[in-house]
């Protein structure tokens, strides 16, 4: 699955780091680092983190019925 956090929105509430510690981690007191392509085994944790984020900064793809990436051709993709 794929994750991106809008770090402009993020205010360092750290809910995600509590709920999915293998994917999200605080770096210092407020900065957030995260794994952008966590293992599917973390899906439940990540979805909890998405739901718990007070500023709704986390976008996920490939989880909870969201659409999965289409194929990308190397140079000539029809």
């Amino acid at each position: 699955m794929r994750v991106v956090v809008d770090l402009n929105r993020c205010q360092g509430y750290a809910q995600c780091a509590f709920l999915a510690p293998d994917v999200f981690a605080m770096h210092g007191e407020e900065a957030l680092l995260y794994d952008a392509e966590p293992d599917d085994a973390r899906r439940t944790d990540v979805l909890r983190a998405v739901a718990a984020c007070p500023v709704r900064a986390i976008t996920v793809e490939g989880a909870g019925g969201r659409w999965t990436a289409d194929r990308v051709g190397a140079s000539n993709g029809a």
Binding site: V4, A36, D70, G73
Partner: peptide, 18 residues
């Protein structure tokens, strides 16, 4: 492993590396 999550399918013709 920093590919961007897609918000939806875009059904595009990709010309990458060009």
């Amino acid at each position: 492993q920093t590919a961007l999550p897609r918000r939806r399918a875009i059904d595009a013709r990709w010309r990458l590396g060009v």
